[in-house]
Design a protein around this nucleic acid. Sequence first.
DNA 1: GCCTCGATAGAAAGCGCTTTCTGTCTGAGA
DNA 2: TCTCAGACAGAAAGCGCTTTCTATCGAGGC
Lengths: 348, 348
Amino acid sequence: MTVTLADVAARARVSPATVSRVLNGNYPVAASTRERVLRAVDELDYVLNGPASSLAAATSDLVGVLVNDIADPFFGIMASAAQGAIGEVASGRAGGEKLAVVCNTGGSPARELTYLTLLQRQRAAAVILMGGSLEDPEHLAATAGKLAKLAEAGTRVVLCGRPPVPGDANAAALVFDNRTGARLLTEHLLGLGHRRIGYVAGPADRTTTRHRLEGHRAALAAAGVAEGPTVHGPYDREAGYRATAELLTRDPGLTAVVAANDTVALGVCAALRERGLSIPDDVSVAGFDDLPFSVDAVPALTTVRLPLHDAGARAGRLAMGAEEPPAGGPVTVPSELVLRGSTARPRD
Amino acid sequence: MTVTLADVAARARVSPATVSRVLNGNYPVAASTRERVLRAVDELDYVLNGPASSLAAATSDLVGVLVNDIADPFFGIMASAAQGAIGEVASGRAGGEKLAVVCNTGGSPARELTYLTLLQRQRAAAVILMGGSLEDPEHLAATAGKLAKLAEAGTRVVLCGRPPVPGDANAAALVFDNRTGARLLTEHLLGLGHRRIGYVAGPADRTTTRHRLEGHRAALAAAGVAEGPTVHGPYDREAGYRATAELLTRDPGLTAVVAANDTVALGVCAALRERGLSIPDDVSVAGFDDLPFSVDAVPALTTVRLPLHDAGARAGRLAMGAEEPPAGGPVTVPSELVLRGSTARPRD
DNA sequence: GCCTCGATAGAAAGCGCTTTCTGTCTGAGA
DNA sequence: TCTCAGACAGAAAGCGCTTTCTATCGAGGC
């Protein structure tokens, strides 16, 4: 049989209550007693029964981190930072060990809801939702409902890179300034003299996609430049590759292509190169996110940097309650233009 | 208050036992009764209390996936595949919903143990350990002990890309054929005529590092070629960048560099390029893993492909017990040489 | 027509903790 | 010396499920 609290209590010649108190460190216990208990724990190789503990205490030490695609470093970096921050905060508190778990929704609303329910079922201590969400009203309402339930049950909710649902004051939110980043990027291209700019957007109906596109369009509108061709697709290399063909068909005279993110930009570069077009001499290319590999592309990618690590770490601290959510509504995480070799003046 | 099983039972005019049986689908319940219960569940918006359920049933629906670095696509891809497979298997079983959670150890033995304990505490249904491990005997023993405890408590243990601990028959193991892959790669280089090959290895004391290095050395030995300079470092871009300088100092006449993995290779390429050396004309470069971005490097990276997605998915199925662990000990996952533009005949 | 069996449903005993409510004992103050 | 606060420790009542073990009710079987 597995060792129980009672076994430890018996061995340490104290009551179960005392063992529990030693383990949780939330009640005064004489040093000598504590030591006796700890030794018994050690000798018996005792491990607390989590479910029993969660049931009795009505809380658990689970923190859920929901991401759209765990294979994408964009999420990997944020999740890693969050998990690190959570571990750090936890180690500073007695009995505050938290199990930070990342759940991969694959961008599917259904799986997102499933995970949220599972986390609710586990009475998770906190939930962090990372990355943009689908803008379908029905899904939004369903998600908002779940989050409200979670908050009500005492689960802390943190949004990281996802706009808060209007009217929901429960969740601490970190929103990325995608719009400004995208605008700066397109302004940069316009400043170089580009007038025919293609755009490879992310999946339609996603907040991130929309915001980046809006920033791009705002820059064009402000400069009085007509919008070039736009193609939607997933956030992967393949999408960039395919979209490039489409873009060039629609406007063979493109001098620049803006991609939804760096991964997509890599696909764009590959397609361009395959057609014998040189970057940036024939066509400039820009990405978004400044993922680690972007600096190693040839030429290195001009992109927009998002402080993914910082944002993830902050989300982790918010989830642990180690940092107060700022009163003034959602925090805007600034983006920063990173100029590198993949953009230049157009020929002529 | 939150809704409990009893509330649902009252509303459906049945006993709590019946509600439980409907929810778990493990006992015959008349269709009409089932429907009544389900409606009550729906009307009350009832969510099962996970801890209570786990406590009573002595099992939980948690599956832990431990990875060394979640920000590294190598792990992201495997974790994603595993989580997908787990979700797939679960959806085919009534009440079989599993919460697949990935835990980021950061390669730290201490955190690995911590997570294992946390999962043990949660009475996890299964645990998957991904990626190589530290070879420190003490840590190995500690880990083996934990895994034995877990297995004993009914948790299924799966190793994916990590050699099984000798004498441990509890864990299903999928081991990557790093040795053969590395050997093939070096043989390819030798075949091209390279005789002065530098090697940027991963962290010392890691199984993956050692196996790849062994394969490399085996090829050299077989060909009677002297080993070139070797530098150890983490599995990141920076390491490759830095190691390259060291390598060239030790042997300025190098004609090829083999990197511990693709990410490291990217750093090598950057450093080489910075010194005005052309790839592959001046120096050939090779990686390992064939991560998605490797084909987009310029020139595209010669590397060794590991079926990460397949392996991850299989690990997921093994964890769910949906696939029997093969009787004949650990399964070897084959690696495959992928020849691309970053390697060529040396000058002369 | 009586008994047995299969199909359902309920009663109730925990699962292993946490925590409130009670002590008990010591030392300080009067 | 007596009282009382303070510091610890124990008893016991759940937390919300699961799961035996029992009941009940028809339908066949003899």
